[in-house]
Nucleic acid binder design. Structure first.
Lengths: 339, 339
DNA sequence: TCGATTGACGTAAACGTTTGTGTCAGGCAA
DNA sequence: TTGCCTGACACAAACGTTTACGTCAATCGA
């Protein structure tokens, strides 16, 4: 945190003090640790390093970016940071970025197609080297267009056919839910799917119904309702189901928050959980464990997902071979479905 | 989203095509809308503007920052983005920043003094123009040191004596809770205070006990426990209280999440809410409304707090007069404390 | 009528890096 | 001895803006 009083120190300053040219300073300072010797004698190297350290030299990233046209900046777009899941994924991204000396910065798109476009442009205007999208929509051509322009990006949380993505294996997660319900003998299922245009919603839902179908159980369409991933959406979806007079002994919500919303409505209507209805969420947020009736849920590797997406983006930008990954989910059985 | 195939277009390119000097282009492009005429004839102005638009010219922010040594970047440090409250505040910051053409970027400090220092340095190295701290600690000298260096910053969410801050009037919030409890005749109070080094915790707690004292009611120290703001902390704090055999008919948690954690523990121990115990949270997060027993809470203006802190920082950096603000909280009475 | 002002630009010097090309001495093989 | 190589640097040209100073007409006030 050494800050010079007068002028902030530059490579020129170091060069003068060390009695070498600014070119040498630059090469020594920007070479990887083990290769500094390639450009200067050991004494020169250590002299420069010491001086830099002592005077608190910090490279001016604007100047460097201008010269190299690389910013070491990556932009991250998420639906909402308020969403615990995305916030956690972002923490993983930030953590990995920090380790690699890459700065990340994040914006909210509110799942709005227009905002998505606008925010992306803002980030490109800031000359980010690459992008991470946590808000991919199955129904929008935006990402396909973006690829035309040759901008490197990876998706996380949600995937989209034909694009590089690091996600949870949501389909497998859905199947786990189905298997658990079959074991418990609760197959009169209702699905609060989340947002229809999100692969997370689709994959979780289809994993569940596919596996049930394999067991000879059909889930008719009126039992699947897409309202959103948050608490309010969970309330609304559950309320609609009950109003429609649909009877059920198992509710799967594509998100813990939606599940908690649903829980409130179920209790208001006099259903006991898990007595009358088993309730299962998704993501294993801390709330799942702490809420009145501990929630059975699928644990998704949010933090690792974030880390891995940043690392993958870096590999992509470095021209290394990369491929999509689906990280394994895990079933966490708690009181809300034991019965 | 026009991207040139060959070379990205620069001011030089525009200048050549428009038949003027690059200086003129720069002046026209960077003057505020209403002052473009100051630097060129109307025809020249519109020619440049049209060309810029047509070719999709975007100023290179690195070059501009290098020249002006202003980055239009502000750094934001929060304890955790996972925390709904801080995430919402950040949304406000981002929103205001976007409107002013200022890019914000955010990092997590995990309330760790060392990390706070490190992350701040990373941001300064990135040459941010200013900083917003959402993680001020009453017990750390870090901010005082930072001011010595002349870095402009403002605090939000938490305040600290002697520093510019935009917060909720938490002391008033605490008093509101007290008044509500007095009205309800529930004065056998227990306080789950949050984190002791946070002004939010201190102010809310002291507002509450001061007001109770004015009504002739003392809250002895063993009834105040600081464990944290999240669900897990709420659980732990509540559990400790009950284990200590402290009897109570009213629990105030300095945060909705802590309140929800406490709710679980209370129910586990066979207490009914609000029958046996009134429960009150803070912040009015969406969960407060949606959880099984709707939670009485204090609504704090999170989003406006974020907006205002960014605006204040900008005024500060522009040399305009600024002062700290404490935005008004509001009591939201729900089922958890009625009865 | 003439100096002063104004409008409409142009020149050129930064800002702090990075990097392709030198340069130059010393060492080596032939 | 000569030619070549190599280690250890130095030179200088970018990168794309911004901005302090010009310059040069046309206009204006007295």
């Amino acid at each position: 945190m050494t800050q010079r009083l007068g002028r902030t120190i530059t490579q020129r300053g170091l060069a003068e003090l060390a009695g070498v040219s600014i070119a040498t300073v630059s090469r020594v300072l920007s070479a990887p640790q083990d290769q500094r010797g390639r450009w200067a004698s050991p004494e020169t190297v250590s002299r420069i390093l010491e001086l830099a350290n002592e005077l608190g030299y910090k490279r001016n990233p604007h100047a460097a970016s201008l010269r190299t046209s690389r910013s070491d900046l990556v932009g991250v777009l998420v639906p909402r940071l308020q969403d615990f899941v995305l916030a956690t994924i972002y923490e993983g991204i930030e953590e990995a970025g920090m380790e690699l000396g890459i700065n990340t910065y994040v914006m909210n798109s509110h799942d709005d197609v227009e905002l998505q476009r606008l925010r992306t442009q803002v980030m490109l205007d800031r000359r980010v080297d690459g992008l991470i999208f946590g808000d991919a929509r199955l129904d929008a051509p935006f990402l396909d267009e973006l690829r035309e322009q040759g901008v490197p990006f990876v998706l996380t949380s949600r995937r989209k056919e034909g694009h590089l993505s690091i996600t949870c294996d949501d389909y497998a997660g859905g199947r786990m839910v189905a298997e658990h319900l079959i074991e418990q003998g609760r197959t009169d299922v209702v699905i609060l799917g989340g947002l229809e245009f999100a692969s997370t919603a689709q994959d979780r839902t289809h994993g569940l119904i596919d596996r049930l179908r394999e067991a000879g159980i059909e889930v008719p369409p009126e039992r699947i309702v897409y309202r959103g991933f948050d608490t309010a959406a969970g309330r609304q979806a559950m309320a609609e189901i009950l109003e429609d007079g649909i009877s059920t002994n198992a509710v799967f919500a594509a998100n813990d928050f939606a599940a908690i919303g649903a829980l409130g409505v179920l209790q208001d209507h006099g259903y006991s959980v898990p007595g009358d209805v088993a309730l299962i969420g998704y993501n294993d947020t801390p709330l799942a464990e702490s809420v009145g009736i501990p929630l059975t849920t699928i644990r998704s590797p949010m933090h690792p997902m974030g880390r891995e997406s940043l690392l993958t983006l870096c590999r992509l930008m470095a021209g290394e071979p990369v491929e999509s990954q689906r990280l394994a989910p895990e079933l966490i059985v708690r009181a809300s479905s034991r019965g």
